[in-house]
Amino acid sequence: MTTAKALSDSPIPRRTKVLPGRTGRLRAKAPSGPPGRRRRERGALPLLLGPSVVLIAVFVIAPACYSVYLGLTNTQLTGFAARDPQFVGLENFRNLLGSEDFLASLGRTGEFVFWSAIIGQTVLGMLAALLLRKKWLRGKGVFGTLILMPMVVPEVVASLTWASVLSSDEGGSFNRLLAVFGSGAAAPLQDHPMASVIIINVWRGIAFAMIMFQAALEDVPDELIESARMDGASALQIFRHITLPLIRGPVFLYLLLTTITTVGVFGLVYFLTQGGPGQGTELTSIYIFQHAFQYSQIGLGSAASVILLVLLTILGATYARLAKVEV
């Protein structure tokens, strides 16, 4: 009786129910909103998410599913298989995984992504972002503009321009520069094709890395850096133990984005070397283009793209797990 009277006299808010907890204690149930408001929110949710879901379904999910279907057939652009494609199951995938040319193209793609995106663009973009935060740096606007300019140039224009600069002719800009220092003519695209395309792709991608890292560095409190500096920490120690852990999420998000875009690079390499000399720069994207459109093997090219998509999905999940963020 005393407990019941105490509960009846206690100032319990309206719409609040007192329920017994698992340990015998009394716990309060949080008040919920009006039923009409909840119904309006549930009705607005499909209207807000509907357009994005439709766009993703039409332009992402449907093409991916259709690529999987084509990879299971012998579809071609010409011949009898173009009019009446047959279902061949996993034959295209078995042929690709047993093909030395395809596996070699995957290896070259991995080399290209590692040196140009993960190492080159990430490191140089981070250095550029850190320099722009320095108060002693003069001409930050000019410095930032020079880095952003390659991002504005279209991919085809950039590749044709660099093909002219690195031409093996004596009239090429690179050979003219070598002649000033008394050196003979060189042919970088023929002698060192992979290194050349890696350097050019790094040149184009530094701007995007700088923008993302600069935005991430703005969230690092200056008080932490000043405190660490007063405690005697060096610039490298501050970056390693304070700055880098605080921007870990944006860094891995950038690595995910730049890996996806670099794997899909086609025009830059194709207009520079067309996958040559020999197969020195034949990336998987060029391999897919050649077999799907030049050799008319749509089914085989689609199967190769599906394998590449699976590898990218595994790599993206690894990035998200390392970053410990939800993507």
Rank of each mutant, 00 (worst) to 15 (best):
T3Y: 03
P13Y: 09
T16V: 15
T16C: 09
A28R: 12
P31R: 12
G33L: 15
G33K: 10
L45M: 14
L47N: 10
L48F: 14
P51L: 10
V54M: 03
L55T: 12
L55F: 13
A62Y: 12
S67C: 09
Y69H: 11
T75Q: 14
T75R: 13
G79I: 13
A81V: 02
A82L: 09
R83V: 13
D84Y: 14
P85F: 04
L90N: 03
N95T: 10
L97V: 14
L97H: 03
L97I: 10
E100P: 01
F102H: 06
G107Q: 04
R108D: 01
R108V: 07
T109H: 09
G110I: 04
E111V: 13
V113M: 02
S116P: 10
A117G: 08
A117D: 07
L124H: 08
L130Q: 10
K135V: 11
W136N: 12
L137Q: 05
R138F: 11
G139R: 11
G141T: 02
G141I: 02
F143K: 08
L146Y: 11
L146H: 11
L146K: 04
L148G: 03
P150W: 08
M151P: 02
P154E: 03
V157N: 09
S159Y: 08
S159R: 14
S168I: 10
D169L: 10
D169G: 08
F174S: 07
F174T: 11
R176F: 11
L178H: 01
V180M: 12
V180W: 15
F181L: 15
Q190R: 14
S196E: 00
I198A: 02
I200A: 09
V202E: 06
W203R: 10
W203I: 05
I211F: 07
D219P: 00
P221E: 00
E226W: 00
A228E: 00
S234P: 05
H241P: 08
H241Y: 15
H241K: 15
L253H: 05
L257V: 04
L257C: 02
T259A: 00
T261Q: 05
T262S: 01
V269Q: 00
V269W: 00
Y270M: 04
Y270S: 08
F271S: 06
Q274I: 07
Q274K: 15
G275C: 04
G276S: 13
Q279D: 10
Q279V: 06
S285Y: 00
Y287W: 14
Q290I: 11
F293R: 04
A303M: 06
S305D: 02
V306W: 03
G316E: 06
Y319W: 08
R321P: 07
L322H: 10
